[in-house]
Simulated scan of single mutants.
Amino acid sequence: GQRAAEYGARVAVIESHRLGGTCVNVGCVPKKVMWYAADLAEGLRDAAGYGFGASAGAHDWGQLKEKRDAYILRLNGIYETNLAKRGVTLVRGRARFLDRRTVAVGDNRLCAPHIIIATGGRPVVPDIPGSALGITSDGFFELTERPRRVAVVGSGYIAVELAGIFAALGSEVSLVLRTGAALKQFDAMLGEAMLKILGEEGVRIDTHAVPEKLA
Score class of each variant (00 low, 15 high):
residue 5 A to Q: 03
residue 9 A to F: 11
residue 10 R to M: 10
residue 11 V to G: 02
residue 11 V to E: 01
residue 15 E to K: 03
residue 17 H to V: 10
residue 18 R to N: 12
residue 20 G to W: 01
residue 22 T to Y: 06
residue 23 C to F: 08
residue 23 C to R: 09
residue 29 V to P: 03
residue 31 K to P: 02
residue 35 W to H: 13
residue 36 Y to F: 14
residue 36 Y to N: 13
residue 37 A to F: 06
residue 39 D to R: 12
residue 40 L to H: 00
residue 41 A to V: 05
residue 41 A to N: 08
residue 41 A to T: 07
residue 43 G to F: 02
residue 44 L to K: 00
residue 44 L to C: 08
residue 47 A to E: 05
residue 54 A to Y: 15
residue 56 A to H: 08
residue 60 D to E: 08
residue 63 Q to K: 14
residue 63 Q to Y: 06
residue 64 L to Y: 02
residue 67 K to T: 14
residue 67 K to N: 13
residue 72 I to Y: 03
residue 73 L to S: 14
residue 73 L to C: 11
residue 76 N to M: 10
residue 83 L to Y: 04
residue 83 L to Q: 06
residue 83 L to A: 05
residue 84 A to K: 14
residue 85 K to R: 15
residue 90 L to H: 00
residue 90 L to P: 04
residue 91 V to M: 01
residue 94 R to P: 00
residue 94 R to F: 12
residue 97 F to G: 11
residue 97 F to K: 09
residue 97 F to D: 02
residue 98 L to I: 02
residue 100 R to G: 10
residue 103 V to H: 09
residue 104 A to Q: 05
residue 107 D to R: 13
residue 107 D to Y: 01
residue 110 L to C: 07
residue 115 I to E: 06
residue 117 I to D: 08
residue 117 I to G: 04
residue 117 I to E: 11
residue 125 V to C: 05
residue 126 P to Y: 07
residue 130 G to R: 08
residue 130 G to E: 01
residue 130 G to N: 05
residue 131 S to E: 12
residue 133 L to M: 15
residue 133 L to R: 15
residue 136 T to Y: 01
residue 136 T to N: 04
residue 139 G to P: 05
residue 140 F to C: 01
residue 140 F to W: 06
residue 140 F to I: 07
residue 141 F to V: 00
residue 142 E to G: 04
residue 142 E to C: 09
residue 142 E to T: 15
residue 143 L to F: 02
residue 143 L to W: 10
residue 144 T to W: 10
residue 145 E to Q: 13
residue 146 R to V: 00
residue 147 P to Q: 04
residue 148 R to L: 12
residue 149 R to P: 07
residue 149 R to T: 15
residue 150 V to A: 03
residue 150 V to N: 05
residue 151 A to I: 09
residue 153 V to D: 01
residue 154 G to C: 04
residue 155 S to F: 03
residue 157 Y to N: 09
residue 158 I to K: 06
residue 158 I to G: 00
residue 158 I to F: 05
residue 161 E to M: 00
residue 161 E to A: 01
residue 162 L to D: 00
residue 165 I to L: 00
residue 167 A to C: 11
residue 168 A to H: 03
residue 169 L to R: 04
residue 169 L to G: 02
residue 173 V to I: 07
residue 174 S to Q: 13
residue 184 K to I: 13
residue 184 K to G: 04
residue 187 D to K: 12
residue 187 D to F: 01
residue 187 D to S: 12
residue 188 A to I: 12
residue 188 A to E: 13
residue 189 M to V: 14
residue 190 L to R: 09
residue 190 L to C: 08
residue 192 E to K: 13
residue 193 A to Q: 15
residue 193 A to R: 15
residue 194 M to L: 09
residue 195 L to Q: 06
residue 196 K to F: 11
residue 199 G to H: 07
residue 202 G to L: 03
residue 202 G to H: 04
residue 207 T to G: 03
residue 207 T to Q: 14
residue 215 A to C: 13
residue 215 A to T: 15
residue 215 A to D: 15
